[in-house]
Amino acid sequence: MPVTWSDEVDEVLRDDLTCGFAYITPAGGAVVTAVAPLGLRDRERGTVGFTTSLGFGRKLDRIKDEPRVALAYHAREHGIGDGTNRHYVLVQGDATFDPTPDREVLDAIGERLVPYMGQPRRGPFWDRWLSAYYTDRVPVTVAVTRIVAWPDLRMKGRPEVFGAPLPSVEAPPQEPPKKGTGPRVDATNAGERAGKLPHRLVAYRQADGYPAIAPVEVKSASSDGVRLTVPVGVPQGGRRAGLLAHSYRAKLIGLESRQNTGWIEVTGTEALYAPHTESGFAAPPNKTIMLLANGFMARRGLAKARKEGRAQALGR
């Protein structure tokens, strides 16, 4: 039977402008990035969703190889709700996508986008420049396995579970990577950047193979790593983990994102995170500049996907 959920949870799924999306890496770690869900969900079928672009990143490649994913609805600002619902909602499930959606599907997504993002720019230039961004949208549908809802955005309090029970055992520590667990990029800079942004999420693989996502606080940063405070329930010991720190403004006009993959060592509610890779971007709060950048990155990413054969493998 499809998993269903409460009205309070549905309100969060409907209203949030952005959420964290996590997928599993081939090495058994997790990557977490920000996506715009646009209220995509179906309570009768037990699904939630979001869209991405074929030209952005390798999310679709990873989903194709390992469909178990997670979405964390962790922020209330700038959505279509009044912000009074403070639940932290973690959705876990199996993702599929349609690499060649028909025009009606894309048009329906465009209509859903308006309340969250405003009217799209139209005209000969913008239609051509943003073609890779708008017409190469890929709908991702997640068949929900479970939803865990905490009454507090800091993941505090007694959670309510919809669907499959949570794993009865904690994920055991993972084997350290061959290159060691210490930082491979500047941990001080990574921690300072993350600490300046209002939203920070860590993702890891839990005992049943699904990624989990938890909000964290940055306490300090040094050459040894980034010291974090993590919620109760994050598994103890060492493991591969992804870290996302981000900020965004209304309609996503003005945003910043900093991503890391690395190694986390957890003791109680304290953790030391050693970043191994880093990426990120910052977009100024100017809609014209944002759209120009979106068009450029989508076109460049799509050209790269085609050159590497990834677009053909996905049906494009």
Rank of each mutant, 00 (worst) to 15 (best):
200 R>E: 00
282 A>H: 01
57 G>R: 03
232 V>I: 14
129 W>Q: 04
306 R>N: 04
112 R>L: 14
241 A>E: 03
123 G>L: 12
273 Y>F: 14
107 D>W: 06
129 W>L: 12
218 V>C: 00
113 L>H: 07
28 G>P: 15
74 H>F: 05
2 P>H: 01
117 M>C: 15
280 G>Q: 12
243 L>D: 02
22 A>M: 07
270 E>G: 10
91 V>K: 05
124 P>F: 00
28 G>M: 15
237 G>H: 01
117 M>G: 14
92 Q>L: 08
164 A>S: 14
283 A>M: 12
298 A>R: 07
102 D>K: 12
203 A>C: 06
313 A>F: 13
119 Q>E: 14
68 R>W: 10
246 H>T: 00
61 D>K: 08
252 L>S: 10
162 F>D: 05
306 R>Q: 08
241 A>L: 01
293 A>H: 15
204 Y>A: 10
163 G>T: 06
183 P>W: 03
81 G>A: 11
183 P>M: 05
154 R>S: 15
276 H>W: 04
248 Y>S: 12
93 G>P: 07
83 G>C: 09
70 A>Q: 09
7 D>F: 01
130 L>D: 14
40 L>C: 03
46 G>R: 14
40 L>V: 13
238 G>Y: 09
305 A>T: 07
213 I>W: 02
63 I>W: 02
12 V>W: 01
129 W>V: 10
185 V>R: 02
171 A>Y: 01
306 R>H: 11
32 V>W: 06
187 A>W: 13
18 T>R: 05
238 G>N: 06
260 N>I: 00
219 K>P: 05
271 A>C: 14
103 R>V: 11
283 A>G: 10
182 G>Q: 07
96 T>G: 11
250 A>I: 05
102 D>G: 08
184 R>D: 13
270 E>W: 06
181 T>L: 08
141 T>A: 09
289 I>V: 15
282 A>E: 12
255 L>G: 02
152 D>E: 05
166 L>N: 11
264 I>K: 05
159 P>Q: 09
274 A>L: 02
50 F>N: 12
14 R>K: 01
119 Q>F: 02
253 I>Y: 03
78 H>A: 01
172 P>K: 12
190 A>M: 11
153 L>F: 02
315 G>A: 05
254 G>R: 01
263 W>A: 08
192 E>H: 09
